[in-house]
Write a protein that binds this DNA or RNA. Structure first.
Lengths: 335, 335
DNA sequence: CCATTGCTTGTGTACGTTCACATTCTCAAC
DNA sequence: GTTGAGAATGTGAACGTACACAAGCAATGG
């Protein structure tokens, strides 16, 4: 007498025990309106009693709807992306969807292809992209992906339909303008990697602000979002002290840069003012507390989902851009 | 003439075009040994040509295997959990599994139940838990979950089979001992929240080390992992300067605490030495750079997956504990 | 009292795949 | 040339659900 593998109960088991047809059970599950209250209750009782769970695979098979949203992210543990993913997960869950996350190891084309391929094989109904988007977008077009998708940051690429935009250009402008307002005229910028759309947008905002103020434009340094990069770039840059303010593409690089400042015997904001971007929770506790641009990552995630869900239902929603916000702390001071 | 919705190609379409039976195609897909090379190639050609993708739902239905690993995480964007999740995803993908992530909003019982319920409904074959584990473990038992599961941190709860352990107790000992070796005798500890097993383990390591050295034991402060908490707890603690060293349960709280030190006019490590835990990438760039305990989060994730996969195949692997490592930086100094 | 309507329930079928079993083919050994 | 074994391929089920349609039932109106 083996403890023989018990089959999980199915819809017919429920039906038998409740004394109805399987179709009636199906109706209860799908909240069909025409079902007598007593019958419904009887079915529900049986369901909880025997611990029945609808088989998602069977459901997906017959409806050809996976109720799954794919999330494609860069292999990063950064605060922003992580926060957004969590928000996406919650919003999706509330709408009866689940998410499946795939991260890409590098931004190489094959890596992206493999990741997209896996997502498609899982029959995702929609796609959220949080990654080096330029290349990913290319891959999406090339693979003829026809599910609704959305990229999580501002893209000024004529892809308005597929973009959940925080106005990063405006955010970067805000940051740069803040430095200008403090009287700085020589402002450096360390940006994110080349193929990140948001890096590009922030750089654009910086350039716009500097140009509008008729200040000297300096070639931004292309970084990789890490504090390490900020540190080493800082050590290099500070050998020539020909600037008095720095706008970093994110808070981590700002942190690294400030570290380089102390190591070079310079004070922030005494000698150099620093502005970051993102407002990660730690930024308020940096030394000195970092002036930065706050982004509502959770809100972006939520909106991305609602945008996709709307598209799945054939409706369109006009999404207002989310405006980022300047948070002034002690890392910036008047010249 | 509508552009009528084209049905995705199925296994029979492939079979027809390749001039074989659908079962032959199935064999090609599942790498059955007895299949002629020429036939196999013909089938593969057709597959790539028409862009056929096996329907996972149908597969899951008939095999009753979802090839999905569920990940239950706390709603946190912290470096550690995020890194582990990414590693889990990669390891799972290599083994032909995918992951589905669900995060719990609060550590309330219902919240945990809902999350677990969603995971079970998705028929996950295994479960990784990165969350306030004490309560989650209770829920797992209560719901009679019978899939293999693993918690991602050390649990000294007689659950060795289900634990992917980094030896956190040892790590905390290491941190505390480092302070003792530097001559400190009054050492405070800010720990993580009550129901996190890892918080508990770190506290245990601290207490062990302090006891073994016959030092005064101080009641640890229960924190919430955030820099904010570290800051405010620090402001409070520093009103009585009756300690010379602090071991924080993670790097964020250490950062907040150091912030409180500057605000209180104290120098780190001049007046107070600080040790963190985790070695997040930013820790090397704190002011001063933080002495901390490095954990290999990615390795934990990988091992968790291999543990689960082994269990699914009925084999058992003995997992050596991963030992954390002390990284000495400038936030600690001899008394 | 019967026809009509709307609510409630039941029956057949399809979704796309794999498994168990059956069949055909190939080649070597007697 | 026959037999047999193993390789290669094919046929009929089954997985658990939702949809289309059919049918039963009660209430309403004439």
């Amino acid at each position: 007498m083996e403890p023989e593998k018990v089959r999980a109960p199915n819809i017919r088991d429920v039906a038998r025990l409740a004394g109805v047809s399987y179709q009636t059970v199906s109706r209860v599950l799908n909240e069909h309106p025409s079902i007598r209250e007593t019958t419904k209750q009887r079915v529900l009782d049986v369901i909880t009693e025997i611990g029945y769970r609808p088989n998602q695979a069977a459901r997906a098979l017959v409806t050809s709807r996976s109720r799954t949203i794919g999330v494609l992210t860069a292999q990063t543990a950064d605060y922003g992306p992580s926060t957004s993913v969590t928000a996406i997960e919650h919003a999706a869950r509330e709408a009866g969807y689940r998410i499946t996350v795939t991260s890409i190891a590098s931004s190489e084309y094959t890596s992206i292809r493999v990741a997209l391929d896996q997502l498609l094989t899982q029959a995702v109904e929609a796609l959220v992209v949080i990654a080096p988007q330029v290349r990913v977008l290319e891959a999406i077009r090339e693979l003829h992906i026809d599910v609704p998708y959305v990229t999580l940051q501002n893209a000024d690429m004529g892809e308005a339909d597929h973009t959940m935009s925080i106005d990063q250009v405006a955010g970067a402008r805000l940051a740069t303008q803040h430095l200008i307002d403090l009287g700085h005229t020589e402002i450096m910028h360390i940006s994110g990697p080349r193929d990140w759309i948001e890096a590009d947008a922030r750089m654009q905002g910086y350039l716009n602000a500097v140009n509008d103020a008729d200040l000297r434009t300096r070639a931004p340094i292309l970084g990789d979002w890490t504090a390490h990069f900020g540190y080493y770039a800082g050590l290099e840059l500070l050998r020539f002290r020909d600037f008095t303010a720095l706008f970093a593409g994110n808070d981590q690089m700002a942190l690294g840069f400030m570290h380089a400042c102390w190591d070079s015997g310079l004070s922030v904001p005494g000698d150099i003012s620093v502005v970051g971007f993102d407002d990660i929770p730690e930024a308020a506790h940096f030394y000195p507390p970092l002036t930065t641009i706050r982004q509502n990552f959770a809100e972006i995630g939520r909106r991305a989902v609602s945008l996709l869900l709307a598209e799945l239902q054939g409706t369109r929603v006009d999404q207002a851009q989310i405006t980022p916000e300047l948070v002034v702390r002690r890392s910036t001071a008047a010249l």
